[in-house]
Design a protein around this nucleic acid. Structure first.
Lengths: 101, 101
DNA sequence: CAACATGTTTCACTTTAGTGCAACCGTTTT
DNA sequence: AAAACGGTTGCACTAAAGTGAAACATGTTG
């Protein structure tokens, strides 16, 4: 890829590559945050906004790029505390949770 | 306790009991959603708003009251997908996630 | 094309969430 | 004061997250 060039290498290009063109099922899921499918997309987007590679994020968060990859591709479920840790340490942000009834 | 009397047996009374009077450290953490401490409080509040007992929630969500108790008391970490399941099946609501950078 | 960067995948190993059940503790209720 | 209700705690089991490291795919750059 090559996302180092100051963040914006267009998030949409990334989405196209990872989730298909707009209109496809996967892309719709990404956009609407369907089920836990959202988790990977959420982290991916946040990471790209920070202009970090998986490896950089992993190092800061105290984990490995392979694990980050698995989260972003929704291959592994993730604990809330783990996601929080990655976001806080790796991205300097924080996770917000809320229950809508 | 006795929360069946049409939902509101004052949420604040519950908070007092579980997290101490306003001003204490635990209560502050609850109110401000500090770290993963928030997860238990979040579920507790949502459940009380629906006027359900742990057992009723557990049954709907397909789990046990002991597990619900452990989540509410932050004794066990919880996966995002698991929390989603409990909220959707048990409370008829949904979990919202967002990353603040 | 060779070297490099980024991300994916596999394998193996340790820890822990998820689950069930049973016993227990305080409060209410009868 | 015994039974019922709501919640907590303990133990044991198994499925999967969490972790590391290495190999691989692919695109990019010198």
């Amino acid at each position: 890829m090559k996302t180092k060039d100051k963040n914006i290498k267009t998030l949409d290009e990334i989405k196209d590559k990872y989730y298909g063109k707009p209109g496809t099922l996967q892309r719709e899921k990404l956009e609407s945050g369907y089920e836990n499918f959202k988790v990977g997309a959420l982290l991916l987007e946040a990471r790209l906004e920070k202009g970090l590679t998986q490896e950089e994020l992993a190092k800061k968060a105290g984990t490995t790029k392979s694990y980050i990859s698995k989260i972003e591709n929704n291959i592994k479920e993730v604990r809330i505390s783990t996601l929080q840790k990655i976001i806080e340490l790796g991205l300097g942000g924080h996770l917000e949770l809320s229950i809508k009834l």
